[in-house]
């Protein structure tokens, strides 16, 4: 499989420049740059990245342009995005299943 993508653009990951192919998700862009972890868990601070790859597991949460809890496997990387490692889970702002 070969790709002939449009011109690459850049985003930043924790301040460092990362090249992105148009259409790539944040997760795909980070993988291409050799980054496999961009979150630490709230409890034990373990590193995490992609697990399910299809938006179900929420392991790939990342902060994009100041918004926490974005699923890197779903969100498209846009030119100039400021992507940052997310520490903790930031539950507060959403309700899911039987939340507190």
């Amino acid at each position: 499989m070969r790709a002939e993508p449009g011109p690459a653009y850049t985003v930043t990951f924790d301040g460092a420049q990362v090249a992105v192919l148009p259409g790539q998700t944040v997760a795909a862009a980070l993988w291409s740059a050799g980054v496999t972890a961009w979150r630490t868990t709230r409890g034990t601070g373990e590193p995490r990245g992609v697990f399910c790859g299809i938006g179900v597991c929420f392991d790939c949460l990342v902060t994009v342009n100041g918004r926490p809890n974005q699923r890197a496997c779903l969100v498209r990387a846009e030119p100039g995005d400021d992507i940052r490692t997310q520490h903790g889970t930031g539950h507060e702002h959403v309700v899911g299943g039987e939340e507190r």
Binding site: Q24, A28, S32, V50
Partner: peptide, 13 residues
Amino acid sequence: GGAQAMLKGGLVL
């Protein structure tokens, strides 16, 4: 399946 999805969707390994 996630590996497959990243490959088919993002062309990344």
